[in-house]
Design a binder for these strands. Structure first.
Lengths: 348, 348
DNA sequence: CTGAAAGCGCTAACAT
DNA sequence: ATGTTAGCGCTTTCAG
């Protein structure tokens, strides 16, 4: 590994000059020719700064801590992590990972991150429950991913559940469906309530009346399949909006048993990834995936803008994400996630 | 953050003494009482070493680089990452993440990791293809996860596909199934071949003759559902072993259309996570998940043992994993992954 | 047995 | 405009 010393010797200047130049602090301080030479030498030698040494002086590391609390075994956060990773590497940061089970070890692990001098935290918890932000995190810049918190102290990137419900329903309406059922979650989560709101709004805007016989909320221990079966037989819906992969599955199963073909006899839009997991789906099912990747990406951008105390500009996203809003704007409905700014109050 | 200086002052000794003691180099060098006092003070002050500063001297960081190449959007590695993370934090290491698309940026990102002074790499690529190990990685301790490589220079932790095929088939045989079909992959991957071997071996050991009419290999673009349908109607199998979630789905669909109930009329064991995704499965489906978590955990243990040049002992696993083999032993069939030692040849 | 001192690679205030 | 210098927190050799 080349050091500044090597560059300095090769360029025939002192280490401090090199430092000045390579950190772009040379404006009006170092003679342009010298600066150019230094830069060239650095390039030639393939010099890369040693982040450890740098952080020892500056206490800025270019490291972001990604803390995720996983529900046992469910790799919920993985796509958000990937998004965060992409954004992060784009801006020259890197991610230190802590995956915790929320136990006492979390504190320990988080403080480990702190010792490594992370510049800020991303905190992700796959829960629709309202939770508290771990105390250890609130002393650094922090952006939450998809976590409902009791206080509104930190920016949050979260799914736009209303938009999901609205969008799915509207698409079914636009496709010509007459009787659109909603297979929801019996547990009264915020997600459930908000999606249903979106569903109702789409109905309302289309001039249709809401019919609660078309809404079946099933739990995880209910005889769910039977409940959906009954809906089929009593209401004969021609379209379904499903809360998640499980619910989509029930509809699928019921349809198959009745010789009905999805995409022909029935339209189904489910939240989840079932069509992805079962990648050669015949017939066609439409799913709306929670935009985890985008949330991770966005959250990381927000965190970096917080750390560097500057706006990242209107287009911090790679091409595929270009339909995402600018980092500081409200999210349009067509993207199913949004940023809640919450002024970040860092208690030191 | 407390520093050694603080501890030294508080204990009334010099910094070097503190260093000696806290690194356990005090045997016969520091008076036991003094050592005790130092330790106590460190404890009281909550002193934690600064890894950055330490690595500046020792060039050991306690950081492991996790490099994963993702197929676009498939968060395949996430569980392996979680396993690695668990093992890693157990031994006081921490994971720096690089998630790459295999492009030119990979080199850049990997060298970023190198600058952060990672002690070693975990490399994971979700592919049954034979690939080369990225050149940038071979200069550090390296353990591969689930990656078939052209050369055998590095230790690999990989799924034991034979055991999966054998185990699934044997379980179906033991459950009393008469006609066990295999829905495989038309693409002739190593995975496919090895699983089929396991299937055949189980047949052989049970004294049954292999009947290739019961094997249907479907591709991703085939009229897969039709092919499985035909198998149903021509052979009337009473059990299925399925290559992955897609194939399991086909069986499920065909069964539903015929009014057959899995778990009653049919036994199905599929490789994958379908029963997990559709978490309230009715009726019961059995899946064998690729032990990604375990592979990650194991690989990290192996890597650490490589870095520290010591055996981690026979029980490096948490309780839930205690049925996994010792880090240096061959894997028994009951765990569906194995370690291939491959002497690690680090070219400096 | 303990402390002083050098130095890892880098930054930045201070001299020149 | 450039160089000198003093550390950041830690390890380790070498004197005492």
């Amino acid at each position: 590994m080349m050091t500044m010393k090597d560059v300095a010797e090769k360029a025939g200047v002192s280490i401090s000059t090199v430092s000045l130049v390579l950190n772009n602090h040379d404006a009006g301080r170092v003679k342009p020719q010298i600066a150019a030479k230094v830069r060239q030498m650095a390039e030639e030698l393939g010099y890369k700064p040693n982040p450890m040494a740098r952080s020892l002086r500056t206490s800025r590391t270019g490291i972001l801590g990604f803390v995720s609390e996983q529900i046992q075994g469910i790799p919920y956060t993985s796509k958000a992590l990937q998004g965060a990773q992409d954004a992060t590497s784009r801006y020259g940061y890197i991610i230190l990972l802590v995956d915790t089970d929320g136990s006492a070890r979390q504190v320990e692990q988080t403080s480990t991150l702190q010792r490594y001098g992370v510049d800020g935290f991303l905190y992700s918890k796959p829960s629709s429950q309202v939770t508290e932000v771990p105390e250890e995190l609130v002393h650094s810049p922090l952006v939450l991913i998809s976590t409902n918190t009791v206080d509104n102290r930190f920016p949050i990137v979260e799914p736009n559940e209303f938009a999901i419900g609205y969008d799915a329903t509207k698409r079914l309406i636009d496709s010509g469906a007459k009787k659109i059922a909603y297979i929801g979650n019996a547990k009264p989560t915020i997600t459930q309530a908000t999606r249903l709101e979106g569903y109702r709004r789409a109905f309302k805007e289309a001039g249709r009346t809401f019919d609660d016989r078309l809404v079946v909320n099933v739990g995880n221990n209910d005889p769910a399949l039977e409940m959906v079966s009954r809906l089929f037989d009593e209401q004969h819906p021609d379209a379904f909006f499903c809360y998640d992969d499980s619910r989509t599955w029930y509809v699928y199963e019921c349809a198959a048993r009745r010789g009905l073909t999805i995409g022909k006899d029935l339209s189904v839009i489910g939240v989840g990834n079932l069509d992805f997991i079962v990648d050669t789906f015949t017939p066609k099912l439409t799913t709306i995936a929670i935009p985890e990747y985008e949330m991770g990406y966005w959250a990381a951008c927000k965190l970096i803008s917080l750390i560097e105390k500057r706006s990242l500009g209107p287009h911090p996203f790679p091409d595929e994400l270009s339909n995402l809003p600018a980092i500081d704007a409200a999210s349009p409905a067509k993207v199913h996630c949004r940023l809640i700014e919450n002024e970040s109050v860092i208690s030191k």
